[in-house]
Write a protein that binds this DNA or RNA. Structure first.
Lengths: 134, 134
DNA sequence: GTAAACCTTAGAGGTTACTAGAAGGCAATA
DNA sequence: TATTGCCTTCTAGTAACCTCTAAGGTTTAC
């Protein structure tokens, strides 16, 4: 029979507002309707929504996801193009991972530095150290 | 003598508009001025801007950075609070790294799947496979 | 001495991605 | 049969984060 918008909202973590917005914007392909005109999602929709969430959550802009979904609708002939899009995005993700790892370390050093300053001032409370403890 | 807004813009990758906006919003502390009223950045500013960029680029919202900067201005007494903020943010970053790594793998699988479909259809061009190649 | 290349401010405008409200339809339940 | 609860569309509003324009001041280069 298919799933209601509410069910899909719960499964995907996207609000019903967002799901309708995505369909309107072409981020989701047109969803099937039941006899009352209500959206009726199927398992393929769930698969695609899961991929869309993955792309979105790793920073792909909505406009680009839309492009990917449009290619999907065009069929198998667009597979190389879609694969290229994914490969480019994967590179982006891997670049971000590296970047985040660097910054995680940098923040760690800052935390350690703050700790050392805290110990210093607590053992020598009269001294007002720290001029550049940003 | 200090650095002009243009120099800092180039060093930081933030536009002069953004730097002024950040100062106005309290994301940067008030910057020193020269005799003509022009901004005159110093090395401490560069250090702080570097940290701010690091926080921003790892997803800390401007409002939170602002809070951090406000605490910095209050002095050494706020060190534990600042350290707490950084530790929470670091956890966020590490969570994101894990998440991104998962999604990088997922996209890899999708890419491999697309490749296999492409090979299939090119060796059997008469067959229109692919119904769910999302 | 004037034009280019900077800088300043205040405030408006833009982009992205939702998010909510209003008005109404259908269906099951008390 | 009326209330509850879900759905629909259309359109307007919001939040975050810039980005630009207008109007004007100063300094340097020809």
């Amino acid at each position: 029979m298919g799933y209601s918008i509410k069910t899909i909202s719960q499964k995907s973590g996207l609000s019903p507002y967002t799901l309708r917005y995505y369909e309107k914007e072409g981020v989701l392909p047109l969803v099937a309707r039941d006899e009352n005109g209500n959206r009726c999602f199927h398992d393929e929709d769930i698969d695609l929504i899961s991929l869309i969430c993955c792309l979105k959550d790793t920073g792909m802009p909505i406009a680009e996801i839309k492009q990917f979904v449009a290619l999907s609708k065009e069929g198998g002939g667009t597979l190389p193009e879609r694969r290229k899009l994914l490969m480019e995005h994967k590179q982006e993700i891997d670049r971000k991972i590296e970047f985040f790892q660097q910054f995680s370390k940098k923040i760690d050093h800052k935390i350690a530095y703050f700790s050392s300053l805290e110990n210093e001032t607590s053992s020598q409370p009269q001294q007002q150290a720290e001029e550049e403890a940003n």
